Amino acid sequence: MKINNEELFQIGEVAEMLGITTRTIRYYEEIGLMDPPQRLEGGIRIYTKDDIKRLKFILKLKELGISLKEMQELAQIYKIHQTPEKIMPKLIEILDSHIAKIDEKIAKLASLRKDIVDYKTRILEILKQNNT
């Protein structure tokens, strides 16, 4: 739908577009990740292309493993400064923290893999000795 030459979307359209539920969108609004949307008469939520960009950003952060709490921190910074440039240092800090956690998990998994391969090798040697 268009109002004042701006393309607007109802919550169901946005949810379908992004592959999420309407409940998810409402939840993001409730916890402050999204500003309350404009409403038509009758209370129907309508979203702008900027709202959809914001939702896509939230979904990308979620995909990267950023917690809702961390997203709320970013949203607070954005609300205060109203420029994406101001949230970038905090976002980089959060991403660096996640990279460190991932590196730690990779190291633990590599160690576990080595232990499992060593254990398997010992079992195969025992089986080989028993069959000869």
Rank of each mutant, 00 (worst) to 15 (best):
residue 93 E to M: 09
residue 81 H to V: 13
residue 85 E to Q: 13
residue 83 T to L: 03
residue 98 H to Y: 09
residue 77 I to Y: 03
residue 78 Y to S: 08
residue 76 Q to L: 15
residue 113 R to F: 04
residue 77 I to H: 07
residue 111 S to N: 09
residue 87 I to N: 02
residue 90 K to Q: 11
residue 122 R to E: 02
residue 80 I to F: 06
residue 75 A to Y: 02
residue 88 M to P: 03
residue 106 I to M: 04
residue 114 K to P: 10
residue 90 K to N: 08
residue 118 D to E: 09
residue 102 I to C: 04
residue 84 P to V: 12
residue 113 R to I: 15
residue 118 D to Y: 00
residue 116 I to P: 00
residue 94 I to Q: 00
residue 103 D to E: 08
residue 85 E to D: 15
residue 120 K to Y: 01
residue 83 T to P: 00
residue 97 S to L: 02
residue 97 S to W: 10
residue 80 I to C: 10
residue 106 I to G: 07
residue 93 E to G: 10
residue 83 T to Y: 01
residue 102 I to F: 06
residue 107 A to G: 03
residue 120 K to R: 07
residue 83 T to V: 14
residue 120 K to F: 07
residue 92 I to L: 15
residue 103 D to Y: 03
residue 97 S to T: 14
residue 122 R to K: 06
residue 89 P to V: 04
residue 121 T to F: 07
residue 92 I to Q: 13
residue 121 T to L: 02
residue 99 I to V: 15
residue 101 K to F: 03
residue 114 K to D: 14
residue 92 I to S: 11
residue 76 Q to V: 12
residue 102 I to G: 01
residue 83 T to M: 08
residue 100 A to S: 09
residue 87 I to C: 06
residue 102 I to M: 08
residue 110 A to L: 11
residue 85 E to G: 10
residue 102 I to H: 03
residue 109 L to G: 00
residue 94 I to C: 00
residue 89 P to N: 02
residue 104 E to W: 04
residue 106 I to C: 06
residue 99 I to D: 10
residue 98 H to L: 12
residue 102 I to T: 13
residue 80 I to V: 13
residue 105 K to V: 12
residue 120 K to W: 05
residue 114 K to Q: 14
residue 90 K to L: 11
residue 82 Q to K: 13
residue 106 I to W: 01
residue 85 E to M: 12
residue 99 I to T: 10
residue 119 Y to V: 07
residue 119 Y to M: 03
residue 84 P to T: 13
residue 99 I to S: 05
residue 96 D to K: 13
residue 102 I to W: 03
residue 101 K to I: 01
residue 103 D to L: 01
residue 76 Q to Y: 14
residue 80 I to Y: 04
residue 114 K to C: 12
residue 114 K to E: 13
residue 108 K to E: 04
residue 113 R to V: 09
residue 108 K to N: 03
residue 110 A to Y: 01
residue 103 D to P: 05
residue 121 T to S: 10
residue 79 K to R: 12
residue 101 K to Y: 02
residue 81 H to Q: 10
residue 111 S to D: 10
residue 87 I to T: 12
residue 110 A to P: 00
residue 101 K to V: 05
residue 113 R to S: 13
residue 121 T to R: 07
residue 113 R to C: 10
residue 93 E to T: 15
residue 89 P to K: 02
residue 94 I to R: 01
residue 109 L to A: 06
residue 122 R to F: 00
residue 77 I to K: 05
residue 81 H to F: 14
residue 83 T to A: 05
residue 93 E to H: 09
residue 105 K to D: 04
residue 80 I to A: 07
residue 78 Y to R: 11
residue 120 K to L: 11
residue 99 I to H: 11
residue 112 L to A: 09
residue 93 E to D: 12
residue 118 D to G: 01
residue 115 D to N: 07
residue 106 I to E: 02
residue 114 K to I: 08
residue 76 Q to E: 15
residue 112 L to D: 08
residue 98 H to E: 06
